[in-house]
């Protein structure tokens, strides 16, 4: 899992993706110039907090952005020789659920309450493989059994409300894997689940990925899930990629101050710490990203360059990039200062 696969032609190649929401006089630049690749059979993680643009990136890949949102002209999402941005409606429907499928966070709202789960899984095969009702049902039961649902034949006849959260998530995984897609986008697939059920589902996803060689784009806020499932990690902040590296490298040598801050803000079992490190302030609004470095005001190392110049993605090491000027003045890391933003909670 830890080796980064290098294929000559990536399965998915995103270049300068910009997804903006035009709301009257203001524009929210939710995804603002994102570029990355996912190789065949690779598991790539995108980590970041609410509002960083990770979910909008996922929805953009499947063209599920609704007005007033729009993928801006010039954005490229190359997948299996096609540009998904310019694909016709009919063609994109053939990609969705067939070549690329998605697992959502909330399994209850992703399932239709008035159909049995078997019908809903079978529908995928009927639409994309054009098979008969009976054949589709058989395939659905087979897919359900693959996800470890006990007595799949009986479970298939039940309705979503009759299943537990973990079972519903297995149903969604069965739907997502039905057509043996090349890429599965998992958007916080275990966030709504209890920790022992989360362990079951992550175990299942990793196992199925090994079995079928599916690529996975794992979107999560949880660095633990990232560390346990992915081989390469993308850190997003304020609509941009701020760091990208192989998983071992990222955790051993985080470069961007935001990545570093996230890692120290998390309590770790077995680590004795009197106080948690805090990233002061909050994420800026997507309608008004700060000029220069977008993390500048919350950063303990920022200097005048950070205000003047929006940092590019610097090459830090092999396959490791970081959007931080510390790359050119690394000695500044030894001299942290209080961040510019007023620290809420510092009073009292």
């Amino acid at each position: 899992m830890t080796d980064v696969k290098t294929t000559t032609e990536p399965l998915l190649s995103i270049r300068d993706l910009r997804t903006y929401f035009h709301m009257g006089s203001v524009t929210a630049r939710s995804v603002d110039g994102v570029s990355f690749d996912v190789g065949a059979g690779e598991t790539v993680g995108i980590v970041g907090e609410s509002g960083c643009g990770k979910s909008v990136t996922a929805l953009s890949i499947l063209r599920l952005i609704q007005p007033p949102g729009r993928i801006e002209p010039g954005s490229v999402i190359a997948f299996e020789g096609k540009d998904l941005v310019t694909l016709g409606d009919e063609e994109i429907r053939n990609v969705r659920g067939n070549r690329i499928s998605m697992i959502f966070q909330e399994p209850m709202s992703a399932l239709n309450p008035v159909f049995t789960v078997g019908d809903q899984v079978a529908e995928v095969a009927r639409i994309h493989a054009g098979v008969s009702r009976k054949e589709a049902w058989n395939r659905a039961v087979e897919a359900l059994s693959l996800t470890g649902i006990p007595a799949p034949g009986d479970r298939a006849k039940q309705y979503p409300h009759q299943l537990s959260g973990g079972m519903r998530q297995r149903v969604l995984i069965a739907m997502a894997l039905m057509m043996k897609p090349a890429l599965v986008i998992a958007d916080e697939p275990t966030t709504a689940l209890d920790v022992t059920i989360q362990a079951q589902i992550l175990d299942l996803l990793v196992g199925l990925q090994k079995q079928f060689g599916t690529s996975i784009l794992m979107i999560t806020h949880d660095l633990g899930v990232i560390a346990e499932t992915t081989s390469r990690v993308i850190v997003m902040y304020a609509g941009e990629i701020v760091e990208q590296a192989a998983v071992d490298e990222l955790f051993a040598k985080p470069h961007h101050p935001y990545t570093e801050g996230l890692m120290f803000a998390m309590p770790h079992i077995g680590r004795d710490q009197e106080r948690l490190n805090v990233i002061p302030g909050t994420v800026p609004a997507p309608t008004a990203w700060p000029v220069g470095c977008r993390f500048r005001e919350r950063c303990p190392y920022s200097w005048d360059l950070c205000e003047r110049e929006h940092p590019p993605l610097y090459q830090i090491g092999a396959g490791h990039i970081s959007r931080c000027h510390l790359a050119i003045e690394p000695e500044r890391r030894n001299h942290p200062h209080p961040p510019l933003v007023v620290q809420e909670g510092a009073a009292a």
């Binding site: 830890t2 920790v195 022992t196 989360q198 362990a199 992550l202 949880d222 660095l223 633990g224 899930v225 990232i226 560390a227 346990e228 998983v247 071992d248 955790f251 051993a252 890692m263 998390m266 770790h268 079992i269």
Partner: peptide, 11 residues
């Protein structure tokens, strides 16, 4: 329960 907690350390 404790063993199920994902550890934020790939090593």
């Amino acid at each position: 329960l404790l063993s199920a907690v994902p550890v934020a350390d790939p090593a």
